[in-house]
Design a protein around this nucleic acid. Structure first.
Length: 956
RNA sequence: GCCGAAGUGGCGGAAUUGGUAGACGCGCUGGAUUCAAAAUCCAGUUCACGCAAGUGAGUGCGGGUUCGAUUCCCGCCUUCGGUACCA
């Protein structure tokens, strides 16, 4: 028969399933290999062509590893808790569990359509109680542990309590937010509530006051990306920063290990750098400044303690606890107003708008501990409450932001470092000699830092300190669709963990998913669930998205275990993930949290490895083309009016007076290019789709279309309404989502898989374009035709292959091997094409060539490979074949064609026998007739011969 | 703003360690086949000048190192991802 992807793909999918070809056992003689994809959030718009890019790459690699003799774990599941399902529930009343299940079913169908080799027996869904039971369990483990810095390991909180009972906290070296020290007598005298509060300062999962984006009008907490310019993206309502008591995870305790262990894993330098910058380790000093005429001190952190004599003012975060206490009456209104202004600004805005300086003076002063100088205390948004101590000493002479602040508010600038010896040194460079700095004068910067740190300790007003930019992770969400906290509060408000035997704590049924009053999670509405016992309440917040995704890769190892998050035998066999494929958008979020959880489990002895993901490769995003029309903001004669982008460009209509209305890309001619446009047909399709624009006006450069008629200006019959083309995320709202099902329906899954790979390097982002797919489709037909004649008859022979045929095959084997190992799948596809073209022009139909080629192509195009494999007479799957190995002897060349260059530029080529010596090559090149005119009137200065590469003649 | 990545023909991209820039594919042009079309096959296709042989230019922009730079270094521009509650 002829190549019919629809028929053979269906057939083999069924066969694979019936024969459980992709089922993986936890016991095997073969070496293990774990290939993992970042699991998807099952969104309502379904899978688009961008999602499978990484899945195809990892599937190819998994199949390749299986053929190479590994026992490969290659699972898939769903990150199924999340905001979109909850918002959908609020809008439609459909329970998130229901819409999520529906979306998952859709995803599964779409994934199945692509011929992946997932072992679906191991599927996980984070929203499944049998899964989140263990998410809750791990949370409780975090709750019941603290971080011991001496052991550099997490330890049970019970050991800490025992220590408090005996000696208090004075000798404890732990990661903590506890500021006061207490004795064993103090501890034993504490009430339960006081003890709970103290322990919260040590637990790895703990409660503290943190800030959320609160929108009063919407009655909800907003994500940062739901806030634009201080107002909610939906509706444009004001948003304020509101303090709330929330759960956090003490990830900062693991900061040093998260940083150091990057050295042991095979991630790209870019990815490691992003993580290490996120952790942001800095060495500096903690310093205390007495307040002038006020009780207490200001604690600051600085990386440049040497610049203390240039500190002409202090800046504390507007939310800092001290602000209310130290602000003088005369400054109170200014400070209050400023605090209010900052409250309406997102953290991102505060960080990014560094050109405009804002702030307010508290009226208070503190004292320089070395010379007693009075230093004014200001507040400004550029100092963040959660970074360092939330207060800095400002040194305008040596810090860009401080200088701008000083200039704006007329504060003193005292030069303290003479950099004249260091030409080109920037303000950040730690070089130069100290001036105007009392006892530091004349020292080099690095020397001065040492000296001042010693002095701080001596005077008891500070010390050298390591600080991290990394902050503890806020773990509470005021949402319904997440894991409930297995935490109960008693009459005194003391937190108690639930018993493991009572887990999972399932979400209560609700029919209204809107937030409850007072910034409370919707769970607060489930009163019976919350007040489950007289005087006791449950935590009503739920866990964030990263909870379920921080450990899911461990669950795959033993997905059905009811006794543990995964059995120890399974974990000890699979160890860790050998290859993790996912997008860079998770660089610092998910990947950091998962590493943190893994290290915690490692400390507990529950996993054998210190790091979860040995090798990481990043897949780029496949973007969509967004096509939109300009619509005037004001209606014309009661009708919407669309205008050609050309007219906007020429200035007939101002862009400010228009909005962009996205249009289905299918309607557009030349979509994705600068001359994309809509013709009359497109406009009609658009109106069919959006009937509200039935009578709208469409003005083009050459005429106006309205009510079904085109009124041309110039006798033309075709309208050209130019549209705006942009590249961006594929999303439902942009009408540019391409469903892989449609592509598979037309070309087959094998073509789709190979085409996605052929588009370019996996790591690179690129816009989707179906146009080029024909080339890959043709390739597969060519591959088919190697074993079939024009009538579709099977024509494979047992003839001996020629030297040339063996060379083509073995070149291909070598390259595919090399390229898969370096994850260069696009060049693999090219190599296959070159091979098929070569064999076809030689009319090769020989088993000795086609059989190895079939195995080679199986990871990429598994369906056609399985069909060909069985046609070749095999009973078992091509998946259990043995991968071919190339033989160098077939690749040897008798002669090599060298480029002959003049001053590095190719001017001719010439073939020389492969065993020519350097001298022969030089002589031969110089003697070439076509080269002679390049030597005329010039001197040959040098001849560079690189064997097997090139010959370069330097003339001048 | 900060952190990270990318930029090569009309388009997607190749060039693995500093050594023939444009493999492979799309598109386009011409031809074969066909009553015609689709499909298929063959040839050509970086740009400029030239009938041609050929000559010159050329990997975002500006410099540098080198016999030789898409590749290394310095300074910019543009686009994309992240920026801690999108996932």
């Amino acid at each position: 028969m002829e190549y019919q992807p629809r028929v053979i793909e269906k057939k083999w999918k069924k066969w694979w399933e019936e024969n459980a070809i992709y089922k993986v056992e936890n016991i095997s003689d073969k070496p293990k290999f774990y290939v993992l994809d970042m699991f998807p959030y099952p969104s309502g718009s379904g899978l688009h062509v961008g999602h499978p890019l990484g899945y195809i790459a990892s599937d190819i690699f998994s199949r390749y590893k299986r053929l190479k003799g590994f026992n490969v774990l290659h699972p898939m599941g769903y990150d199924a808790f999340g905001l979109p399902a909850e918002q959908y529930a609020i809008q439609t009343g459909v329970h998130p569990a229901k819409s999520t299940a529906k979306n998952i079913a859709r995803y599964r169908e779409q994934l199945d359509n692509l011929g992946f080799s997932f072992d679906w027996n191991r599927e996980v869904q984070t929203c499944d109680p049998s899964y989140y039971k263990w998410t809750q369990w791990i949370f409780l483990q975090l709750f019941e542990h603290y971080y011991c810095k001496d052991a550099d390991s997490a330890k049970p909180i019970s050991e800490l309590i025992a220590c408090f009972e005996k000696v208090g906290n004075g000798k404890v070296n732990a990661a903590t937010s506890q500021e006061n020290s207490f004795s064993s007598d103090d501890w034993n005298a504490f009430s339960n509530k006081e003890k709970d509060d103290v322990l919260m300062n040590y637990r790895l999962a703990y409660r503290k006051v943190t800030y959320v984006n609160w929108c009063e009008e919407l009655g909800t907490v907003l994500a940062n990306d739901e806030v634009k310019d201080g107002v909610s993206e939906r509706g444009g309502f004001p948003v304020e920063r509101k303090p709330m008591l929330q759960w956090s995870l003490r990830i900062t305790a693991f900061a040093e290990r998260l940083l150091n262990d990057l050295n042991d894993i095979e991630w790209s330098d870019a990815m490691k750098k992003m993580q290490s910058n996120w952790i942001g380790r800095s060495t500096g000093a903690q310093m205390f400044f007495d307040l002038d005429g006020n009780e207490g001190q200001i604690e600051i952190y600085t990386t440049r303690p040497d610049t203390i004599f240039g500190a002409t003012f202090m800046v504390v975060a507007p939310e800092h606890d001290l602000v209310a206490q130290i602000t003088t009456d005369s400054q109170k209104s200014a400070v209050d107003e400023y605090v209010k202004y900052v409250g309406a600004r997102s953290e991102r805005e505060r960080m990014s708008e560094t050109k405009t300086v804002t702030g307010a003076f508290t009226g208070a002063y503190c004292l320089n501990p070395f010379n007693g100088a009075k230093i004014p205390v200001w507040i400004s948004e550029y100092v963040l409450k959660d970074y360092g101590t939330g207060a800095i000493m400002a040194v305008p002479a040596d810090d860009e932001r401080d200088r701008r602040f000083a200039e704006k508010f007329g504060l003193d600038i005292v030069e303290i470092i003479d950099k004249s010896m260091h030409e080109g040194a920037t303000i950040e460079d730690k070089v130069g000699k100290m001036i105007n700095s009392d006892f530091l004068n004349g020292m080099e910067v690095l020397e001065a830092i040492q000296a001042i740190n010693a002095k701080l300790v001596e005077m008891g007003i500070g010390q050298a300190q390591v600080n991290y930019r990394l902050r503890d992770a806020i773990y509470s969400r005021q949402r319904y669709w997440g894991e409930p906290f297995p935490i109960m509060y008693d009459e005194e408000g003391v937190s108690h963990p639930m018993n493991i035997s009572d887990l999972p704590l399932e979400l209560p049924e609700l029919d209204d998913f809107k937030p409850a009053s007072g910034a409370k999670s919707p769970l607060a509405r489930a009163e019976e669930w919350v007040n489950f016992k007289e005087g006791w309440t449950r935590e009503t917040d739920t866990m964030p998205g990263f909870a379920g995704s921080s450990w899911y890769f461990l669950r795959y190892m033993d997905a059905k275990n009811e006794e543990a998050f995964a059995g120890q035998d399974a974990i000890n066999y699979w160890q860790d993930v050998d290859l993790y494929v996912g997008g860079t958008e998770h660089a610092v979020g998910h990947l950091m949290y998962a590493r943190f959880w893994h290290k915690f489990l490692y400390d507990k002895g529950l996993v054998p490895t210190n790091e979860p993901f040995r090798k990481l490769i990043n897949q780029g995003m496949i973007q969509g083309v967004i096509e939109s029309m300009y619509m005037l903001k004001e209606k014309v004669e009661g009708q919407a009016k669309f205008v050609c982008a050309g007219l906007v460009k020429k200035g007939k209509y101002a862009e400010d007076n228009t909005t962009k209305i996205p249009v289905y890309v299918d309607y557009i001619q030349n979509y994705g290019s600068s001359d994309s446009y809509m013709n009359i047909d497109s406009i009609k399709k658009f109106i069919d789709w959006r009937p509200e624009y039935e009578h709208a006006i469409f003005e083009c450069a050459n005429g106006v279309y309205q009510n079904g008629g085109f009124n041309a200006f110039d006798g033309v019959t075709e309208s050209h309404l130019i549209t705006v083309s942009e590249v961006g995320k594929m999303s439902k709202s942009k009408y540019n989502v391409i469903n892989p099902d449609d592509v598979v329906e037309k070309y087959g899954a094998d073509t789709f898989r190979m085409y996605e790979m052929f588009l370019g390097p996996v790591e690179q982002s690129k816009p989707w374009d179906t146009k080029g797919i024909d080339g890959v489709s043709k390739f597969l037909r060519k591959l088919w035709s190697l074993s079939h004649n024009e009538e579709g008859k099977y024509i494979v022979t047992d003839d001996e292959p020629t030297k040339e045929e063996l060379k083509i095959l073995h070149t291909c084997i070598k390259q595919i091997n090399q390229d898969i190992e370096r994850f260069s799948f696009n060049t693999c596809v090219s190599a296959f094409m070159v091979c098929a073209n070569g064999l076809r022009s030689g009319k090769c139909h020989k088993r000795a060539i086609i059989e190895p080629l079939t195995i080679l192509v199986a990871p990429f195009a598994p369906h056609i490979a399985e069909e060909l494999w069985h046609l070749l007479g095999h009973e078992t799957s091509v998946n259990v074949a043995t991968y071919p190995v190339h033989k160098e002897e077939y690749l040897k060349e008798d002669s090599i064609t060298y480029p002959i260059c003049i001053n590095g530029k190719k001017r001719a080529t010439a073939a020389f026998s492969a065993d020519s010596s350097k001298e022969d090559l030089e002589k031969g090149a110089l003697a070439l007739e076509e080269m002679q005119h390049w030597f005329e009137g010039k001197t040959i200065r040098k001849v560079i011969v690189v064997p097997n590469r090139m010959i370069n003649i330097v003339v001048g």
